[in-house]
Design a protein around this nucleic acid. Structure first.
Lengths: 193, 193
DNA sequence: TTTTTTGTTGATTGACGAGTCAATAAACTT
DNA sequence: AAGTTTATTGACTCGTCAATCAACAAAAAA
């Protein structure tokens, strides 16, 4: 009973299932069959729509990154002034939509994927550049010449906090993560010059 | 031509080859055959000595962590006073022996392994606890009650810097990494109480 | 010198998984 | 009504790889 216009629905379901499966397994070693089953279809159909496993992984990664970007962008529009914008970036980075067990696990695995698959590397590079640029933009009027180093530091710290959260058992604690980054930022801002 | 006492030699060669292979491939998806070939023996022999692939991975991980710990410990004995000890930990963390392309790549992959293999998780937890405890010990007399948060932040930052280095193309820059962490630390220390 | 221990490998097994294909069916087009 | 496009899957191919085995070699122990 083929209803038409299934393609976007099935693709979305597969992307979601890919993230969930990778996140839950904690590994890229998930079979197309597993993903397809979770998305409620045959593995053949998954191949039909995506052409291959790698394309599915890339789509999933793109999705995670897109959600993240949207989250930050959404927080940014409401923010007025450098301090508020900086805060928005931090809060957005740990927004509940991204900062969930499965997504964090998938995130870490995508980092590893970027080591092997050039397209994945490019995706990640875009995210990193955007984050850095966002931070820099806020920091420049606040700390001047110290902005670049601070931006790099904050970006690394955010990644590090994600990493630690991925390994820690139990539910992720977004509030603690935000507090951690804020504390670091506060120390730098308290410095004169 | 079986010379006796091969076991430790072959095991060491396999561990080294495992790290190199994972680091170079950027993935845990390396075959026992590849590792064994790099170590100059048959895959059957690798199985003979380690019993299985997972055991080889764990031994490799243990080795990386051991080298790291030795590096930090070595730097610590020469250090006198909290500030110097803190500095030793940072410098030791980015010592050339660990902070090399292949090793960093392997490191990241071991983090992912820890998500799947409980024994790997335990190994990593030990490293994390030790790092935190080392940092805390130095920081307590320097910043008092702020020590715990600062220690967590520094630990996360170090991991984050590693992560970024793993993804960045080109040779790792230990000096820049150290400077990055030091800059963060300096900001926190400049704060009164 | 016979036996045991240690070292070593080529060949094989057995499982699993990505990707393809042929076939079926329901919708849309002409 | 005939033809085309879209949806869908079970079955199959083909390759890969971890793990095992049987066999051989040499040193050490008996």
């Amino acid at each position: 009973m083929p209803k038409l216009g299934m393609e976007p629905i099935r693709k979305a379901a597969l992307v979601k299932a890919t993230i969930a499966e990778i996140g839950q397994a904690g590994s890229l070693d998930v079979t197309v069959g597993q993903i397809a089953r979770r998305a409620g279809m045959s593995s053949a159909l998954a191949h039909h729509y995506f052409g291959g496993k790698e394309a599915m992984f890339l789509a999933a990664m793109r999705h995670v990154l897109t959600i993240y970007a949207a989250e930050v962008r959404g927080a940014l529009i409401l923010a007025d002034g450098p301090e508020a914008r900086l805060n928005a970036i931090i809060v957005g980075s740990f927004a509940p939509r991204n900062f969930r067990r499965e997504v964090i696990g998938a995130w870490l695995n995508f980092y590893v994927l970027a080591l092997t698959v050039p397209a994945a590397g490019r995706l990640l590079a875009i995210y990193q550049r955007r984050l850095r640029s966002n931070l820099l933009h806020c920091l420049r009027p606040m700390v001047g010449a110290r902005a670049p180093v601070l931006a790099d530091g904050l970006a690394a710290l955010i990644d590090g906090v994600y990493l630690r959260e991925a390994l820690k058992p139990g539910a992720p604690d977004a509030a603690a993560a935000v507090a951690q980054v804020r504390a670091d930022l506060a120390a730098h801002l308290a410095l004169r010059t």
